[in-house]
């Protein structure tokens, strides 16, 4: 079934066919990105707004460039610089934006489920660019796109996701997506940063990172927020790094051709060592490129007038 949704709120609930369609479309979009003349008419006449209640550099810029490469009108709204700061509620803000003729609202919000509430109250398409600790679907799509490009397929690959799983919307979206696409997903991290009953999402849980890395095809690091230590979830960053940092030595346990991925921004020497982040196996910069292609694909697919059309 082709993507016929109004919104992209999460990877949860997407079918394998839907994910395939997005990734296939992104292949074509990536071709545009390597041209000298990066301009296509796919979104000509369309209007796109990013509504960010949290700081972001790469995601917001990625959506902005994706929109502009496809000739859309686009504007950015940040919580600090708008009436949001005056206490306007999410639904009112959403309706205000929509009333200006906007086709797609890209929202990032610190509260899980905020995009879902917005989507219920506006007719514009809503894309979740990260909600609380819930999902970051476009990140997972670009990760899957990167894996597929490098490995040919996602099916049957062993993917180890390392770090703060509890607070990671990237991890949650990737778990939904990778398991749907047939990968074996392992999660590893300190027990205080592991969500309850996560095994029931179809992943294997490891507290020992070495065990999780054995034979892995893909190793995904997650950003460790320094505030986790302040909140007492970790005794020290030092101990975390000794136990969970993805470094050269540990990577010997994974397959030789294993990919090293990270959604960025990275804390060098905390969750990943510098040499590994910059090494040959690292896809970190390519992920960023692919992020633009995937977002172009999504913006196009969600705004197609005839959703039955096959691209």
């Amino acid at each position: 079934m082709a993507l016929k949704r109004k919104d992209l709120l999460g990877i949860r609930g997407l079918s394998r066919d839907e994910i395939d369609e997005i990734l296939n479309t992104a292949e074509l979009m990536k071709y545009i990105l390597i041209q000298d003349h990066k301009r296509t008419p796919h979104l000509q006449g369309r209007s796109i707004v990013t509504l960010f209640y949290e700081n972001s550099t790469r995601t917001r810029l990625s959506f902005e460039l994706a929109s502009k490469y496809m000739s859309a009108s686009m504007a950015n709204v940040t919580a600090g610089s708008s009436s949001v700061a005056k206490g306007e509620c999410l639904i009112d803000t959403g309706k205000t934006i929509e009333s200006m003729g906007v086709d797609v609202v890209v929202i990032r919000h610190p509260v899980s489920g905020a995009p879902h509430i917005l989507a219920k109250h506006v007719t514009a398409s809503v894309i979740n660019a990260g909600d609380g600790i819930n999902e970051h679907p476009t990140q997972a799509l670009l990760d899957m796109f990167t894996i597929r490009q490098k490995k040919g397929t996602i099916n049957n690959l062993v993917v180890a996701i390392i770090g703060d799983i509890l607070h990671s919307r990237v991890a949650r979206s990737n778990i939904w997506g990778l398991t749907t696409m047939g990968a074996e997903v392992r999660v590893a991290g300190p027990a205080t940063l592991m969500p309850p009953d996560i095994e029931d999402m179809g992943v294997k849980v490891f507290y020992n990172v070495d065990e999780a890395l054995k034979g892995a095809d893909v190793v995904m690091g997650l950003r460790l927020q320094k505030e986790r230590q302040m909140k007492g979830l970790l005794p020290s960053i030092r101990e975390y790094t000794r136990l969970y940092c993805i470094n050269k030595e540990r990577m010997l346990l994974a397959r030789k051709d294993a990919l090293i991925m990270h959604p960025g921004p990275i804390n060098r020497g905390v969750e990943i060592s510098s040499d590994i982040a910059e090494g040959e196996q690292s896809t970190i910069n390519e992920q960023v490129t692919n992020g633009v292609a995937v977002r172009m694909a999504l913006l196009y697919l969600l705004t197609r007038r005839n959703k039955d059309a096959v691209y």
Partner: peptide
């Protein structure tokens, strides 16, 4: 409630 559903929904339990 903290449990499988809070994990699935990404909501603090």
């Amino acid at each position: 409630n903290e449990g499988y559903m809070s994990t699935v929904l990404g909501v603090k339990g």
